[in-house]
Amino acid sequence: MSDADLSVEAADDGPAALAEALAAEHAAVYGYEFAGGAGGDLDYRTRAGEAALVHKALRDELHALSVAAGVDPAPALATYPLPASRDDAALDSFLLGLEEATARAYAWLSAARDTDLRTAGARGLQEAAVRVVEGGGEPGALPGFDEA
């Protein structure tokens, strides 16, 4: 490897990872609000509503980080994919998938060069890993990473 090769730094994926994490949180808010309306009993609807509030706070934090980093935050989509079945087991599986998606996004964000983004990514990954376990999933050794 030449000195010229060493002087070229890899591109910073922080802004793209931040956008991905924000998109995952938009989808989680939408999904939990849907589950809160479609869930079978009051306890299920209450838990989904509380989780939606958590994801709204995370979404708002990522939005603020985007603005502070000079990244134009993408708005939420008008709609997101939803499960075909509305029973609690299908909704649980759907919500687990949303949590796994947020874990993957936060894992990517935790590798950002910017300290604030990296810290937000690491904290978000820790919290997502807890939600995955609470949702019945297995976070694995490195939550957010698919096994090879």
Results as ranks from 00 to 15, higher is better:
23 A>K: 11
18 L>E: 06
15 P>I: 13
9 E>H: 13
18 L>P: 05
120 A>Y: 07
105 A>S: 14
119 T>F: 09
27 A>R: 03
52 A>F: 10
104 R>S: 15
123 R>H: 10
70 G>D: 04
20 E>L: 13
61 E>M: 03
50 E>A: 15
110 S>V: 06
31 G>E: 06
27 A>Y: 02
116 D>N: 13
101 A>M: 03
51 A>R: 13
59 R>G: 01
23 A>H: 11
35 A>V: 15
11 A>K: 12
59 R>K: 03
17 A>Y: 05
7 S>Y: 01
4 A>E: 14
20 E>F: 00
125 L>D: 01
62 L>V: 06
84 A>W: 00
10 A>Q: 14
33 E>A: 05
99 E>V: 03
37 G>Y: 12
116 D>V: 06
77 L>M: 12
20 E>W: 01
26 H>E: 06
19 A>T: 09
44 Y>G: 05
50 E>H: 14
56 K>S: 13
107 A>K: 00
57 A>G: 11
6 L>M: 13
61 E>K: 15
116 D>Y: 02
85 S>D: 13
24 A>Y: 00
40 G>K: 14
76 A>K: 10
87 D>N: 15
94 F>D: 05
123 R>W: 03
35 A>I: 12
76 A>V: 11
5 D>W: 12
59 R>M: 01
66 S>Q: 07
23 A>P: 04
77 L>T: 02
71 V>W: 04
117 L>N: 09
28 A>P: 03
100 E>S: 12
14 G>P: 09
78 A>D: 15
62 L>F: 14
112 A>C: 09
68 A>F: 04
118 R>L: 01
36 G>D: 08
76 A>F: 09
10 A>K: 11
104 R>C: 00
36 G>T: 06
8 V>R: 14
102 T>W: 00
31 G>R: 08
53 L>N: 04
31 G>K: 07
96 L>H: 03
115 T>W: 06
78 A>K: 12
69 A>K: 14
64 A>Y: 02
57 A>P: 00
87 D>T: 10
52 A>I: 12
57 A>C: 03
72 D>F: 11
60 D>R: 11
16 A>D: 15
88 D>W: 01
44 Y>K: 05
26 H>D: 05
75 P>H: 09
57 A>T: 12
105 A>P: 11
67 V>K: 11
19 A>P: 02
112 A>K: 04
13 D>L: 14
14 G>F: 10
63 H>Q: 03
95 L>D: 09
93 S>M: 01
54 V>E: 15
106 Y>R: 11
121 G>P: 05
113 R>N: 09
72 D>E: 15
73 P>C: 00
76 A>Y: 06
63 H>A: 03
62 L>M: 12
120 A>L: 06
99 E>D: 08
87 D>E: 14
29 V>T: 05
97 G>A: 04
77 L>F: 09
68 A>S: 13
23 A>F: 05
76 A>I: 10
8 V>Q: 12
64 A>S: 11
70 G>H: 05
74 A>R: 14
44 Y>Q: 13
72 D>N: 15
57 A>M: 05
28 A>V: 06
26 H>K: 07
59 R>E: 02
102 T>I: 07
21 A>R: 02
25 E>A: 05
88 D>K: 00
98 L>S: 06
89 A>V: 13
31 G>P: 08
34 F>M: 11
37 G>R: 13
110 S>W: 08
14 G>E: 10
76 A>W: 10
13 D>F: 06
121 G>E: 04
109 L>H: 05
